[in-house]
Design a protein around this nucleic acid. Structure first.
Lengths: 241, 241
DNA sequence: TGGCATAAGTGGTCATACCAGTTGACAAGA
DNA sequence: TCTTGTCAACTGGTATGACCACTTATGCCA
């Protein structure tokens, strides 16, 4: 049995959720104005402060643009939102996972991962090099238990990203992680071949240790390619259904 | 003379700015609590609503975590913020550009750009293929005027990203664009060689037209590599000073 | 020692004003 | 006819003060 913290949400959280959903699913069209704050209060049966807090968050997320006197205008989130919107796009209106989003995330991971490994080999501190090596030691110890390996693989990439000393990689990784967490159980199979490929993780760790950026990059590329292949297979299967 | 819209900012905007700066520059340490809302009202001389709206935005940006009854707790933005924090990290406390951030952004661009070009070749619609080709036509017409070319290059990549049909690339690109815009005049020199390389843009457009993903990827890689080289040179120059 | 009330401090919600910017209708003037 | 100014009716922005709900530390009590 696994216990999780009970979810708690304030009124403005709920308002934010609803409005985000409406916008992302296109029921509030870009260019149009949101209903006025007072109208939203009436419709949602909350006070104006809750509505304003929610709208401020929408603005921060790049979903609306507020203009004093004129209204809150809906933006095209594809052009104005940031990566942290991804978790909101993962589930479609019918509750199913949007495979386009999963594919996109995997591709971004494959684009960034190898270079992160290379940069890590170039720039990691001695402590970071050692941490990566130690983690692969752990992976070898639990080899076979794919579920545990998946957790270690996540930490592996976390360390690699840190070692790459690239703040953009780090922040992008944060957003990707949140998507990953939401579909983690499903990916345990899809990415199985990659997750169990501890040998390549070892090679990467050794390349990082010896500051061999080229090897780190190439092996990481091969590693993420296995995951991409697994995902292609899974997508093909789903489309056949 | 170039006129720009006058900047307008609400009270909560100002509060958000100040708090963000304090957090990003480390004067509010991760794990500690922000001053209470009432204390912030007193210190900033604004009403509590303005403070709350600002704090909600901080939470949305992944900088704080609010707990009813306990306070607003500062998070480690390196692990919890999204890519859209990048523009806030670009300028350091002394007003200078943080070159680490610029380097990070360029690396992310180089990691994603080539794959985006490849995916674009695979997936772009006929209209998108035509748009890329037409844009390169424009580039050839103004060849020589680097400043204008820079604008077209931005639109070029915008089209490529759209054609790649990858929502993660699109959202990441949005965040990168905002950083780019803030240092655009400076990059006109740093990236000069890349910007003037219309020939490679032509090759990419043709590869996209003929759905030759491999060529699109390789040429795009060569193109962004020129920019990386320009940046390395610029960084070396700055460090010599 | 362990459990429980309590008080003080925190964020969350609410109602009600009023200020300030935007927009469109419309009348007065050129 | 076209322009210009005024005004009324919106919109979001700011302010106040009260109260509710949750957390935490304190200290008492069994």
């Amino acid at each position: 049995m696994s216990l999780r913290p009970v979810a708690r949400a304030s009124l403005s959280d709920h308002v934010f959720e609803q409005l985000t959903t409406e916008i992302v699913e296109g029921r509030f069209e870009p260019g149009t104005a949101l209903p006025s704050e007072r109208a939203l209060c009436e419709a949602l049966q909350v006070n104006r402060g809750a509505v304003r807090e929610a709208v401020k968050r929408l603005a921060q997320a790049g979903l609306v643009d507020s203009q004093h006197g004129s209204g809150h205008h809906v933006l095209d989130f594809r052009r104005s939102a940031g990566l942290d919107l991804l978790p909101r796009l993962l589930f479609r209106a019918d509750g199913d996972v949007d495979l386009q989003v999963v594919r996109s995330v995997m591709e971004l991971r494959s684009a960034v991962g190898p270079d992160a490994a290379g940069r890590c080999a170039e720039r990691a501190t001695a402590a970071q090099q050692a941490a990566v090596t130690a983690l692969v030691d752990d992976m070898e110890r639990v080899a076979g238990d794919t579920a545990v390996l998946q957790g270690l693989a996540i930490r592996f990439w976390d360390l690699v990203i840190d070692g790459s000393d690239n703040i953009a990689y780090r922040l992008a990784y944060n957003a990707l992680s949140e998507v990953y967490d939401q579909v983690r159980p499903a990916l345990i199979e899809v990415l199985g071949d990659e997750i169990r490929d501890v040998a390549r993780c070892r090679q990467i760790a050794e390349a990082i240790q010896s500051r061999d950026a080229t090897t780190a990059r190439e092996v990481a590329r091969a590693l993420t390619d296995r995951g991409m292949q697994g995902m292609r297979d899974a997508l093909a299967l789903l489309e056949d259904r």
